[in-house]
Design a protein around this nucleic acid. Structure first.
Lengths: 208, 208
DNA sequence: GCCGTTGTTGTACGATCGTTCAACAACGGC
DNA sequence: GCCGTTGTTGAACGATCGTACAACAACGGC
């Protein structure tokens, strides 16, 4: 009887790698099936592992979802941060880079917004999601506020209200993002960038 | 044996009234339990009827949800429309009324946004929800565009781009609404109104 | 007071959910 | 080559899901 080299029935992986694979499978399921994609069995099938494995690497389904939310958030902020870092060293150029990264792939994608929306829907009733939001949203706000803080007000104009300016720009950006994803035919991404830039323009020209 | 006057075991209602009660129960469940509130059994319990009744008055669970979405949408648009109608007969006063209605009860409510977010989460994967969105969102956009169309541009300025102006204002409004509901401590509703008004101001002062 | 209409009830069913856990097996250390 | 560690499997469980349907009963018409 020859000892034929059998293909192993499965492959052991380092916990950190398996966790990452499970997180990415969860996000993929979310894109494909929306809220209904958030099921242990769907995610297991997507990751090509058995149903029991998720509870071995995460405290439970909610733990995996929270981890996926953290991953998704830091991907966004990290992508924006590096887009800004690649830009020319002028405040306006950096803001422009931030806006163009916001209104292009991979962020500007109907699937991506669908994922966000499901997470937001969980926010109110999940302490874990709330915690992750606190962790990561601050990074986003600080990035945006930092960019606006570099701007100089127009000559003879008072320094604009940085807090309100950041709130408003974030809102305009999120709103345009939302609108585009709900109906991509309504306007061009370039137009969204232009609208945001004219908001920034008017910051230096008016009293707020 | 006396024929004691028994209390009827249930009360028959006109289909339209029962349907309305079920829709309101569904929305209440959505506010209370988020996406998990969208279950036949929870909604039945909330409406104090049996589980079978929903399928008698609606084609199914999805039918009820679509009807609830339609109800929720037209409540919003109707409320805004009547707020505008109550305002003074000046373009700016009408816009102000629209904004103040947007940033006050019952629209500005964490529960209400939670309901919207669940509906948005269903949007991508439900033809019915998409259909209702088409029906009702147009009314909202037309209301907003009508208000902006009444505005006169500043002296010597070209008429602003009405389409982009409406898109931008809607985005700013939605974004502020979202931000406030996610973190009500971040800014005051009055500040949101002010931000939107300064957007409208700048429409008449700049070329876009 | 009886009857037909139909709004309403509640059980039953099969599917799917999240979690548990005993058994299995891949891989590193010796 | 054996062994211990532990990543992995998959069946099993009870809970809950949406729907179907037969039986019930409230109410209006006569």
């Amino acid at each position: 009887m020859l000892a034929l080299p059998r293909k192993p029935r499965f492959e052991r992986q380092l916990p950190q790698e398996r966790r990452r694979a499970l997180i990415e499978a969860a996000i993929e399921c979310l894109k494909r099936h929306g809220h209904e994609g958030l099921s242990i069995r769907r995610i297991s099938a997507q990751a090509k592992v058995s149903v029991g494995l998720i509870n071995h690497h995460f405290p439970g389904k909610d733990g995996l979802i929270a981890a996926a939310y953290r991953h998704f958030n830091s991907d966004l902020v990290g992508g924006l941060r590096s887009a800004v870092a690649r830009a020319a060293d002028s405040p306006r150029a950096r803001i422009r880079a931030f806006l163009e990264a916001s209104f292009s792939r991979p962020n500007l994608d109907q699937d991506v917004l669908a994922v966000w929306v499901v997470f937001w829907g969980l926010y109110r009733h999940s302490r874990e999601i709330q915690g992750v939001h606190q962790e990561t949203y601050q990074g986003y706000v600080e990035l945006l506020r930092g960019l606006l803080g570099e701007l100089a007000p127009g000559p003879g104009r008072p320094r604009f209200n940085l807090r309100l300016a950041a709130i408003g720009l974030a809102a305009l950006l999120d709103g345009l993002w939302l609108e585009w994803c709900l109906d991509p035919g309504n306007f061009q991404p370039q137009e969204a960038v232009a609208l945001c830039e004219s908001w920034v323009d008017s910051l230096c020209e008016r009293q707020s």
